[in-house]
């Protein structure tokens, strides 16, 4: 019993992180049909931000890093994605792929290929034990931040005029413009939100891994893609369900796989996702499509 609870706790920690990765990607896709490969590089920028400001106190460093990521997200949209706005989803995707590669190599040029270690408070590396169940500091951090961010996002989407505009734009972008919603404002706002998500995820990943490096955005972005794809591209709740299942699946494979195969855990998880897609090609929660 304790063992099962232990696994559930671990799964909840992973699922929270994955949700923080998948939601911004799903959000941006919903608004402008862009699957943003470079979302991973926003996380990377956040991590380097933490590295640069780590000398100051951590809360301030975290805040400054967050600001930098949001600015980077806005700049990315303005410089690379606005010129190709309205192109096919494939073109948008390949553009973001180029941006991702560009930023990765720029980071390599600036910071080198060796990871930059970032000091984080020992608080997060401690483990709490309740009734035989070990809860890592990072798990608590992930779950806490995910609850705050996702809860905040839901309230923002439901209660504010901007959130309402975003929901309208996600359903029918042209009609949203026809009632006067400014396309640039909605898209910039969405990118800013995705930047916040990336910044928060960067914080968790740095606490977890202890360092920042140029290619660190890759794994998170793959996870975000797989989760959103499994949930159904463009579906907000689908992304959450996908993230939860992916977290649970990862823990399950970790437990069930023999030791020598454990290092290929991701391969098994993604393979399982492909099998899920074999049964449900549109994902678990097919998105509501815009009427023409």
């Amino acid at each position: 019993m304790t063992e099962i609870i232990q696994h559930l706790v671990d799964a909840a920690g992973l699922a929270s992180l994955y949700a923080l990765l998948a939601l911004p990607v799903a959000l941006v896709y919903g608004i402008m049909n862009l699957v943003n490969f470079a979302h991973g590089e926003l996380i990377m920028i956040g991590a380097y931000g933490l590295f640069i400001f780590a000398a100051i106190t951590l809360p301030l460093a975290a805040f400054l890093a967050l600001v930098i990521v949001v600015l980077a997200a806005l700049a990315m949209e303005r410089a690379a994605f606005r010129p190709v706005r309205g192109s096919s989803p494939e073109t948008l995707l390949v553009t973001s792929f180029a941006v991702s590669f560009l930023l990765q190599n720029a980071a390599l040029m600036i910071f080198g290929s060796r990871p930059k270690s970032v000091e984080t408070p020992s608080l997060f590396s401690q483990t709490v034990t309740i009734g035989g169940v070990h809860i890592e500091g990072v798990t608590i951090l992930s779950v806490g931040l995910a609850v705050i961010c996702i809860g905040g996002l839901v309230i923002f989407m439901k209660r504010t005029a901007f959130g309402m505009a975003m929901r309208a734009a996600a359903e029918d972008f042209t009609m949203a413009r026809l009632v006067g919603i400014r396309a640039n404002a909605v898209i910039s706002g969405t990118f800013a939100i995705s930047g916040v998500g990336a910044g928060v995820a960067a914080f968790i990943l740095v606490v977890q891994g202890g360092s920042a490096f140029a290619t660190m955005g890759l794994t998170p972005v793959i996870i975000a893609f797989v989760a959103t794809m499994m949930g159904g591209l463009g579906s907000f709740s689908g992304a959450l369900i996908g993230a939860a299942l992916l977290g649970a699946g990862t823990v399950a494979f970790d437990v069930l796989l023999p030791t020598q195969l454990r290092s290929s855990r991701e391969a098994f998880v993604y393979g399982a996702v492909l099998v899920v897609l074999l049964i449900r090609p549109q994902g678990l929660v097919p998105a509501r499509r815009e009427r023409v």
Partner: peptide
Amino acid sequence: PALAMSLALFAVLVI
């Protein structure tokens, strides 16, 4: 669907 296929093929690369 086309776009999901692009992403799924990326997962194949990782695998």
